[in-house]
Amino acid sequence: MSALRAAALAALVGLAVVAQVVVFRYVALDGVVPDLALILVVVAAIDRGPQFGALLGFGAGLLLDLAPPADHVAGRWALALVVVGYLSGRVRQDARSSTLTAVLVVGAASFVGTSLYAFSGSVLGDGALPADQMLRIIVTSVLWDLLLAPLLVPLLLWILGALRPARERAVREPVRVS
């Protein structure tokens, strides 16, 4: 029921994280790939609200931090994606109205998320690069996300929508039985 929905969501997050490092490395621009996990978190936050966005962001971020080949201080992506999930959820009323707005939210979220990650790295002295290089990487990743968002936003909204009625049905069923 709810566990099934959670498992499907977890699988979706896992798929995003794995695809990011395995599949997209062949089309990486200077090593920069689209932030699939971030896009998923943003779309989920737009669909379900800030609380859900923050929770999913924490989970997805932690997976990004711990899954190989990650070798940075764990928790950095988790922090960035919690903020991204929460903020995207706050603007959901505006973002749900049109795909274009949602795409723009993804772009803004991508900038905020990657910058926050870069900032935490600078504070911790963990894998910090010169500022101009960091900026170039951040801009490239934002462009990547903006490029994929028009395709991914409707697709993910549809998947998340398909997951939701399944849960509601499952919740109602025991009531019907009793």
Binding site: L64, P68, H72, G127, L129, I138, T140
Partner: peptide
């Protein structure tokens, strides 16, 4: 099999 994304600012 996998390459760490550049936006993680590490090369692994």
């Amino acid at each position: 099999v996998a390459m760490g994304p550049m936006q993680s600012f590490s090369r692994t």
